[in-house]
Design a binder for these strands. Structure first.
Lengths: 241, 241
DNA sequence: CGTTCCCTTGACACCGATCAACTCTGGTGG
DNA sequence: CCACCAGAGTTGATCGGTGTCAAGGGAACG
């Protein structure tokens, strides 16, 4: 793939993930002015460290990333998955953050200069509104995760995560019927759901045995979507515009 | 207190909670144009239901509120506390939400017309930036809660919650040294930390017996701040500008 | 063809949920 | 002023969902 192609594509991905807030040519040019370069990360590599505020923002254009916090004991909590078109570190527009972002798969990102993005927002209100909505959608996802962690059984939680990923990927056109590529290891699912890898494995096996999902090498098929949503009490509204 | 006073105050509270993003006279006038009226809620009353998008936004000017989700089983997960100067339902600028907001104490809110706020943002980019930062700060808090729920022991979690509330109230000038009014019941703490009221009680008693906090009728005193922060692995950076 | 991730399985321990009383406090009405 | 009551906090006994530890299996990959 040609570099020029990728460069042309990041904005389209960004815009697509905004579902609703349409941006015009002006806004496009304004934010494209913040573009620095594309960059690649290998699976497992750290994309954003919890370091000073100076660095650029990272918009994922290919692959999956995850935001996470690491505790002193060494355990890690994944707080969100970042799919193409989304920012790894929108929060850095505001404050210093203790969160980091790592690459789940090979990841390609567009680097945008932070101050330039800020400037673009100040000049183009629609951009601010778009990013605000993006941040609010992330919030909605975080709240749903909170509910899962606080009040749902692990089985329900994993079911919910699968429903969410399915829906988000569907909207991004990355789903074929009820199947999709899912690069997460069971350990990463555990890190996202506040479980151990061992127990994650048992729960998934149970879902498999019950004929609800098929789960294999980087791939998920939801065999009983209805049933899965029921287990998870999943309502896709929170992902909507 | 006179109504005119309250009406003049809501913007100041809002601005104060933005720590960093200073707004000018223009922005002030713009958003004040969205003002509808003040409204009061009694302890326990629902402020925002998960209902259609049409209603106004609620900015808390006095008292504490909480955002929460209710599951089919009837259990409730509080996802955030709303202190004076903050919105109950910023998310409604974007999408439909299944979250509700309830009054923890007697609450007074300023009602702002949603479309008018949107309009104000479109006309005044600084407003959008300010709200974006506000949303990002909320995000940071949510992520921290996720880490607590996913990876910390309950004792650590409660310690963390107390540290967070202390710090947020301190910035709002509602703390005297290491003491502050804390209207939450143990059951509400339980709903926020994903515990049962019974176990919450035991954990709090333990913290008391260890001489770390004093906890009584609507009031908390942190006797060993250093120790409490250590238990919680608390770093206030995520609340900062 | 060995190494390295991942996934899988079993035994056991424990944190925190559940259930069921009981106490204490402040408020309310007679 | 007292009796009652509802809400909040406290306590004890028991149970179960998950974590922990330890070991083995299987597929990709150099």
């Amino acid at each position: 793939m040609i570099e020029a192609d990728l460069r042309r594509n990041w904005f389209d991905l960004f815009q697509a993930s905004l579902a609703g807030e349409k941006l015009g040519t002006e806004e496009r040019q304004a934010i494209e002015r913040a573009f620095l370069c594309m960059r690649s990360y290998r699976r497992g590599e750290t994309i954003v460290d919890h370091s000073p505020l100076s660095d650029p923002l990272h918009l994922v254009t290919r692959g999956w990333a995850a935001r996470a916090s690491v505790l002193e004991g060494g355990s890690r909590q994944i707080t969100d998955f970042v799919l193409p078109g989304e920012f790894c570190d929108l929060s850095r527009l505001g404050h210093r953050s203790s969160q980091m972002a790592v690459a789940i798969t090979t990841v390609r990102t567009a680097l945008l200069e932070r101050q330039a993005v800020r400037k673009a927002i100040e000049d183009h209100p629609k951009l601010g509104l778009a990013l605000l909505r993006m941040a609010l959608r992330e919030q909605a996802i975080l709240r749903e995760w909170l509910v899962c962690l606080g009040r749902r059984e692990k089985r329900e939680h994993i079911a919910h995560l699968l429903c969410e990923l399915h829906e988000r990927l569907r909207r991004a056109g990355m789903v074929c019927d009820h199947e999709f590529d899912m690069p997460l290891t069971q350990e990463q699912i555990a890190e996202a759901t506040g479980m151990t890898a061992v127990h994650t494995n048992r729960v998934i096996q149970r879902l498999r045995k019950d004929g609800i999902i098929s789960f294999g090498r980087q791939h998920v098929r939801i065999d009983q979507p209805q049933q899965l949503r029921k287990i998870a009490e999943f309502d896709a509204a929170y992902l909507s515009t």
